[in-house]
Write a protein that binds this DNA or RNA. Structure first.
Lengths: 197, 197
DNA sequence: ATTGATAAAACGAACGTTCGTTTTATATAT
DNA sequence: ATATATAAAACGAACGTTCGTTTTATCAAT
C-alpha cells in the first residue's frame, strides 16, 4: 500500500517554509535571500521545498496573504465597536502597536516589490482597497451618527487615516526608540484629531 | 604630453551613471537590476562605469544623497516663510506634489534597503533626523507665535506630520488616480488639522 | 514491492567584477 | 603646422561565484 498523503502535515510544512522565508527576507531582502538559505532556515533540502512551492516567486507571493488576515481581524473589531470614532482610532493604534520591527521591514519589502511586480501589485492593491473600503464604511457610519466630522467626505478622511497609519508603521524603522507604544499613541492621537468634529 | 584630467566631465559622467541606475532600480529593484543593464542604460561599458564607481553598492548608496538635497531645498523654503503653520502645511503639500511615481518607487526601495544595509541605514537615518529636526524647529516657532496648537509638544507633532507626509508619498503607488495633486491637497489638509490650535 | 518524501548532487544561466587592450584627446618638440 | 608622446577614458571578453532549479539516489512506510 502506498504511503498516504497527510494534508495536515502539508499545511504545516507550507507554513513553516513561509515563516522561514520571512525570516530570511527580513534579514536579506527578497532578492538577496537565496533559496539555499531559505531551505536551511526551514531545515529542509531544496527538493523538499520544491515539493511545496513551485519556485521562489510563489514563496514571495505567499508573503502578501498574511496582510489580508490582519485586515480581516481589524474589520471584525471595527464592525463590533459601536462608536465609529473609537473603532478607527483604536484600530489604528492597535495596528501600529502590534507591528514588530520585523513586520515593518517585511512590509517595506512588500511595498517596494509591489511597485514593480505585477502579480504582487495585484494582491497588494486588493488588500489596500479592502482596507480603505473598511475605513470609508466606518467613517461614513460615524459621520451619520455625528461622532466624526462632516467637514470632509469619507473617502478623503479614509485616505488621511490610511496615510497616518502607514506613515507611522514606516517610522518604526528610523526611530531608535523601539518602544512602539509611543508611536501607537501618536498614531491614535493624530487619527483622532483628523476625525473628530 | 599627457591629456589633462577633466573634473567637469567626471562630475557629469557620475551623475549620468546615477540617473541611469535610478531608472534601472525603479524598473527592477536594487538587487534585480544588473550592472550590465545599468551600463547599457548609461551608454557605457562595464569598465568605464567601474572607473567612476568602485562597485554596485556604491551606486546604490549614491541614491540616498538625492534625498538630502530635497530636504535642503525644503529647509530653505520653510525658514523663509514667516508663518510657521503655512510653512509646514505648504511644505508638506509641495513635497507630495513634486513626488513622481518613479520617485516614490525609488523611495520605497530606499526604505526597504535601509532596513537591512548598515551603510544605507546610517545615511537614511541622518536625512530622516534632519527632516524631523527641521519640522520640530518650525513647529516650535509656530507654537511660540500662536499659529500652531500647544496641546501637544513639538516632537510629537513633528512625528505626526512626518508620518502623514511619508504616508501620502506611500499612497502614490496604490492609488490608481495618478494625479498627485489630489493627494497633495489631502496631505496639506491633514497636516493643517493636526497643527491648528 | 511499491509509493511518496526527502536528501544530495549536479545543471546551465546569470551575476558582479577584473583586466589587458584600444581609442581619444592634448601638450610639447620640431 | 605637424608629428609625437602620453595619460585619460572606454571597451569588452573572460573570470570565479552564486543563483534558482532539476535530476538522481536513498529512505521510510504501507
Amino acid at each position: 500500500m502506498p504511503r498516504t498523503k497527510d494534508d495536515k502535515l502539508e499545511k504545516r510544512r507550507r507554513f513553516e517554509i513561509l515563516e522561514a522565508a520571512a525570516r530570511c527576507f527580513v534579514r536579506d531582502g527578497f532578492h538577496q535571500a537565496s533559496m539555499r538559505a531559505i531551505c536551511a532556515e526551514a531545515g529542509l533540502s531544496a527538493g523538499a521545498v520544491y515539493n511545496y512551492f513551485p519556485g521562489k516567486d510563489a514563496i514571495i507571493e505567499g508573503m502578501v496573504d498574511w496582510e489580508r488576515e490582519e485586515i480581516d481581524e481589524l474589520a471584525a473589531y471595527m464592525r463590533d465597536e459601536k462608536n465609529a470614532l473609537t473603532a478607527v482610532v483604536e484600530g489604528a493604534r492597535a495596528m501600529v502597536a502590534e507591528t514588530s520591527a520585523e513586520d515593518a521591514q517585511l512590509y517595506a519589502e512588500l511595498i517596494a516589490e509591489a511597485g514593480r511586480n505585477d502579480a504582487m501589485r495585484a494582491r497588494f492593491v486588493e488588500a489596500d482597497t479592502l482596507m480603505v473600503s473598511l475605513l470609508e464604511e466606518t467613517i461614513a457610519r460615524g459621520q451619520k451618527s455625528g461622532t466624526i466630522t462632516r467637514r470632509q467626505k469619507a473617502p478623503g478622511l479614509a485616505r488621511m487615516v490610511m496615510a497616518i497609519y502607514e506613515g507611522f508603521v514606516g517610522r518604526i524603522g528610523p526611530e531608535k526608540d523601539n518602544r512602539s507604544k509611543k508611536l501607537a499613541d501618536l498614531t491614535a492621537e493624530a487619527v483622532r484629531r483628523i476625525l473628530q468634529p
